[in-house]
Design a protein around this nucleic acid. Structure first.
Length: 145
DNA sequence: AGCCATGCACCG
DNA sequence: CGGTGCATGGCT
């Protein structure tokens, strides 16, 4: 069996929101299996495999993001990382900025939803930890290995 | 490992 | 022709 991560969050970097002037249109997803288990599995043998995912926001609007595994390292290049791209429109519409947090969830029926929490609304948890690691956090997980 | 950056293709 | 995303390299 595999892990079934149901909800994760990420504190946005300046580059994620476009504040650095880049047009990357994608945030990096660490190559960590519990994080990756939130997303559909991609065939890692393919070159830059991807899946397009529909996310519903709090107001019921649908957004399509792209979950991509840039793996050209195994095809003569240097990349070996996952990204969730095509979020710029959502980020702009929501008015998100660096240090704001996006919350991604997946239902029992594998329907994805997205929400966010502005920095000003972010609260430390019971341990007083506000931001951990690279900004990603697993909120809830089901199943076992 | 994670964030920053960009040439080019595509599309309105 | 300006904005967006792809694919990739660079920097710390």
């Amino acid at each position: 069996m595999t892990f079934e991560t149901r909800s994760i969050t990420k504190v946005l970097s300046a580059n994620d929101t476009g504040e650095t002037g880049g047009h990357q249109a994608g945030i990096l997803v660490p190559r960590e299996r519990r994080l990756l288990s939130f997303f559909p599995s991609l065939n890692e043998k393919d070159y830059n495999p991807r899946a397009h995912l529909k996310f519903v926001d709090a107001s019921g609007l649908e957004w399509e993001f792209a979950f991509i595994y840039y793996n050209n390292k195994f095809f003569g290049g240097t990349r070996n990382e996952y990204r969730l791209t095509r979020m710029t429109r959502f980020i702009r519409e929501a008015g998100l900025a660096a240090d704001d947090e996006v919350i991604l969830s997946r239902s029992e029926a594998d329907e994805y939803s997205i929400d966010f929490k502005r920095k000003s609304e972010a609260r430390p948890d019971e341990r007083g930890v506000l931001k951990l690691g690279s900004g990603w956090k697993i909120v809830d997980m089901e199943g076992r290995r």
